[in-house]
């Protein structure tokens, strides 16, 4: 594999939370990579381990969470072996993060301009006025309304979309290599979502920042990501280019996710589609495929052992599912017939 060319590479990463109830295996051996100037998405429902993954990569994992295996390489450095001080030089500088709810993730008693400047001053030896000038530049770049006045505002005085722009400015002011966006649009209403997505896309072009997007919203993914990793119960169940995932999805979980995206052209009388059941308990992860309990095409093999990852039309489109085992041809045919009928 051409490992050296990737900007960020996660190999067989495993993270557990050691709680009183026992070891919760939040991330169970996942591998992914990110190239320069690329946007990828980690997609999955709540609790699938996507946020824990990027917290670990950024070195923000907190006790009782602990990395139990695997490696994270960023620009040829072993992230998991760095000292706290070395990590801090990367955090907020080379790799930054924006979060779901900009109101709760901004300090309520600090002016927003100061919060943006703080990121910059932590990593650059500049005077207060130089940092302020830089903040203004940044606010102009993201076309923030009236930056000269609004940089002195407090978070509660701004609208939700403006707050998220502040978060974006804060994350990008140091020209990071990687931006982690953890559900960046979930707390915003739809029109603002579109603006933020557009903003992130345009800034990515201007600043050459690679983005790792975390979301359960496939609509957002379609507008941003080139490659997609579908996560379920701490594992990657399918990965591929955006086209692969949207037009040739292979894993039944991906089918379920795609089917549960609300559609404007859908029959109004029909209920929203959803995936029945809940994700497995990661205190005692199932022996076989984690999705087996909720999968309508599951067979005995699914329950007893974890399927190998299989490549499909291209080397990069892979999924882990027993349906594609030579012995399950009849089942696969039935599943595809049913899916064909649904559409």
């Amino acid at each position: 594999m051409e490992t050296s060319s990737h900007l960020l590479e996660v190999n067989d990463l495993a993270v557990s939370f050691f709680t009183y109830a026992g070891e919760v295996q939040a991330v169970r051996g996942i591998s992914w990579y990110l190239n320069k100037n690329e946007t990828i998405a980690l997609v999955g429902e709540s609790g699938c381990g996507k946020s824990v993954t990027i917290q670990t990569v950024m070195g923000l994992l907190q006790s009782p969470g602990r990395v139990t295996g695997g490696s994270v390489r960023f620009e040829e450095r072993d992230m998991l072996g760095l000292s706290a001080k070395e990590l801090r030089q990367l955090q907020g500088n080379r790799m930054t993060m924006i979060f779901q709810d900009p109101l709760s993730y901004l300090n309520p008693t600090m002016r927003v301009g100061e919060q943006i400047a703080e990121s910059y001053r932590l990593h650059h030896k500049v005077s207060r006025s130089e940092a302020e000038a830089r903040v203004l530049d940044m606010m102009h770049l993201i076309s923030f309304p009236e930056p000269e006045r609004n940089m002195y505002a407090y978070p509660h005085q701004l609208s939700g979309g403006m707050r998220q722009r502040i978060m974006v400015a804060m994350a990008l002011i140091c020209n990071p290599q990687v931006l982690f966006a953890d559900e960046p649009t979930t707390a915003l209403d739809v029109t603002i979502q579109a603006q933020i997505i557009e903003l992130m896309n345009s800034l990515k072009e201007k600043l050459n920042t690679a983005i790792v997007l975390i979301t359960h919203d496939l609509g957002v993914v379609a507008n941003m990501a080139q490659r997609i990793y579908v996560m379920y119960a701490g594992k990657i169940v399918e990965r591929g280019s955006a086209k692969d995932i949207f037009y040739r999805p292979k894993h039944p979980y991906t089918w379920g996710l795609l089917a549960s995206v609300p559609r404007l052209d859908a029959d109004q009388s029909r209920d929203f589609r959803y995936i029945p059941g809940t994700p497995p308990d990661l205190l005692n992860p199932p022996k076989g495929c984690p999705f087996a309990a909720r999968c309508r095409y599951a067979c005995r093999a699914c329950v007893s052992s974890i399927p190998e990852e299989m490549a499909f039309d291209s080397e990069d489109h892979r999924a882990s599912c027993w349906l594609y085992h030579p012995g399950a041809e009849a089942l696969l045919a039935a599943a595809e017939r049913e899916r064909g009928m649904q559409r």
Binding site: M58, L60, L87, R88, Q89, L90, Q91, G92, N93, T96, M97, F99, D101, S104, Y105, L106, N107, P108, E118, S119, L122, H123, M167, M170
Partner: peptide
């Protein structure tokens, strides 16, 4: 609070 996470993510 979440903003404390933001501060840590800045590399403070």
């Amino acid at each position: 609070q979440d903003y404390v996470k933001t501060a840590r993510a800045k590399g403070m």
